[in-house]
Each structure stands twice: as C-alpha cells, then as structure tokens.
Nucleic acid binder design. Structure first.
Lengths: 193, 193
DNA sequence: TCAGTAAACTAACGGTGTTAGTATATTGTA
DNA sequence: TACAATATACTAACACCGTTAGTTTACTGA
C-alpha cells in the first residue's frame, strides 16, 4: 500500500494545480488520483464527491479574487478605487482564467456556504463605492451593475466573442468602466436631490 | 430495421427540444437517440460528432435571438430602441435559458462559421444605436459594452448570484441599461466636440 | 431488375464518476 | 508493549458517456 498520508487539503491543492495547468474541462478525478499516485476510488476517503471538491476549489478561487481586489483598492477612493478594482478583476480573469471559470460556474443556488462566500465578492465593491454619497439601496443595485459589466466583459473576451471588429479590447474595457463611473456620479446627484 | 427515414434536420430539431426541456447539461447523444427510437451509433449517419450537432443548435439559437431583437427595435430609435433591445435580450435569457446557454458556450474561437454568426448578434445592437451621432469606432466599442452588461447581468441572475440583497433585480437591470444610455449620450457629446 | 446509396444495426473501446467490500498501515489507549 | 480502532489505501464492478468499425437491410434511380 505504501501509504503516503494524504490529507483533504493535499487533494484540494492538487485539484487547484491541475485545473490551472490543464484547464477546467480537462479535469478528472482519475487523472487527479494518478497525479497523487493513488487510485480514483481512494479519493473518496477524503471527499464526498466531485461536486464537493469543486466547491472547495471555488472557496479558494473566491478568496483569491477577494485578496486581489482588496489589495488593489487599498488607499484609494471614488473613481480611482473603482478603476483599480476593475483592473484587478480584469487581471485576475486574464491571468487565472481557469480558476476564474470555477467561480462563474459555482452552484450558487443550492449551496448555502457558497452563497455566503458570495459576499466576499461583493465586499470589495461596496468598499470601493464607499466614497460616493449613495443610499444603501443604490449601492446594492450598483454593485450588481458593476459585477455584470466586469463579468460580462471578461467572459466574452475569454470566449473570443470580441473579434468581430479591429478596435482594441482594452479601450472597450476602459469605456465600460467609464460608463459605470458616469452612472455612479449620476446616482450620487439623484441621491442628493 | 423499420427505418423511419430520419433527416439531419429531424435530429437537430430533436436536440433543440431535448436541450430546452431537459437542460443543456442533461443532454446526451444516447438519450437523444433513444427519443428518436434509434441507437446512438445511428446518429453518426447524419452528423459528424457531438460538436457539430452542438454548433447547429448554436446557429438556431443565434438566429432566434436575432429575430427577437430585430422585432423588438422595429420602429424605435435612440433610448427607446436601446431599452427595447435590452428588454428583448433579457426576456430571451429568462424564457429560454438553456438555449441562451448554448450561445454563451459556443466555440467562437476555432469555428469560422460561428464567428460569422456572431455578426448576427451585433447587428441589432448597431441598428439600435444608429440614431445616436457616433463614430464607427465608438459604436464598435459601445457594442461590446452593451453586450457585456446584458450578458453579465443575465448569466449572473440565472446562476443565482444576485441573492445577496433584497432589492428588486428588475430595478437593478433598468439601472444597468440607464447606465449604458448615459454612456451613449456622453459619447455622443464627445464625438460632436 | 438490380446496383448503389442511405439508414439502421450490433459490438466494442476507452473514458467518466461512483460504490461496495476488503486489506493494511498508523494511532491512541489500556 | 499489545491490541483495538481508525484512517488510508486497494480491487472490482456498475452505469453512464462519445465514438468507431463492420454489417445488414430498406429504399431509390437507372
């Protein structure tokens, strides 16, 4: 048997590594087991099933994204903070596309723990907007708008949906962020009226 | 053998029906064959492989989306056209979520025909923006921004990512669209300056 | 009528996640 | 130190999946 004393953490770490290097849709429990020099069935001593493992990778991904975002906005406020946040988000999606995809495909609906982890994604956005004079309700809506813009842009860019025209994709992104800042300023005026 | 003379079209139609009713990730060639009262291997007399069938479903999905969009903006212009387009997009995503997912996961990169079909998605957007005085280059960027907002919003709503706060999701959507219209107006001013 | 084509079949391959049942190395305790 | 308990590994199998090769058979056009 030559047991090596693998832990649950080892398996999650190996899964993350494999997803990052081989791509999310080349991931399989059998190949993961093989890399750990174990049979696939043995994985079930540490995890319930693939979904659970996937969820664990999701926690990691969300915490990494949050870390990158909080780091980006530290010491900044208003437009500068929003732009830095958008940049960090974009960079994360481009530099770690497979890990980013995990976040996107997380089963938010059924899983309560994942649902709570969703607040980790929201928090940096709320912080970045704190410098604007907005109502709580406005911020709740605007947070959704911001996430929509960033997620929509990054996932379409990643999928190759932005090749119809020869204009620079980075310029398009900056325009999208500018649009959001316009909306922020406009909402601020409304709140003060 | 009791052959029933199935055509390629029959198979594509059955695939669409099955995806809509059972969900995209419950789709399988074996089950599709079973519904057609055929063995899975027989499908290969009509299609090359699953990817090709998937692509065909994609063409259908894109044409349906385009149809819905062009219908929505007919006779409208400027903000009214943009709002109608956004509504149509949103409605399509909510009413036919599985077909919408097919569009999202289309392999834009490798497949040239799919790449061309991408213009079918862009066209209604360009038409809706035609009433604004924008440069070609601005429109190319803005078209990306618009798609990002809509796609990002719909896919996150569908995934259940908007449950953190108790504010109405429809209100958030309208705010997102308003943000885009602000950007359109702002871009128009810049173009005229 | 008869050859050729098109549409179905069976059987199999290699892949997937998963479960049941079993063996054994390590660990905690008497 | 001995032994029981636990945790870690195993083998074997199941039910799926897409796909291919080779075969049979019904229909179609000359």
């Amino acid at each position: 048997m030559a047991r090596q004393g693998l832990t649950r953490g080892d398996i999650i770490a190996a899964a993350i590594k494999m997803i990052e290097s081989e791509g999310l849709h080349n991931f399989s429990l059998r190949e993961l087991a093989s890399r750990l020099q174990i049979k696939a069935a043995s994985l079930y001593n540490h995890i319930q099933n693939m979904d659970e493992l996937y969820t664990e990778v999701g926690y990691y991904a969300i915490s990494e994204l949050k870390r990158a975002q909080l780091g980006a906005i530290a010491g900044k406020r208003r437009a500068e903070a929003v732009e830095a946040l958008a940049d960090a988000y974009h960079r994360f999606g481009k530099e770690r596309p497979e890990i980013y995809k995990v976040i996107l495909s997380l089963p938010m609906v059924k899983n309560d723990a994942i649902h709570k982890a969703g607040f980790d994604i929201v928090e940096p956005i709320m912080t970045a907007m704190a410098g604007y004079h907005l109502t709580r309700e406005q911020m709740m809506h605007l947070q959704r708008v911001f996430r929509s813009i960033l997620h929509g842009f990054i996932s379409q860019e990643e999928a190759g949906c932005f090749r119809q025209y020869p204009v620079d994709v980075g310029d398009s992104y900056r325009m999208a962020v500018r649009g959001f800042i316009l909306l922020l300023e406009n909402s601020e005026k409304e709140a003060q009226a």
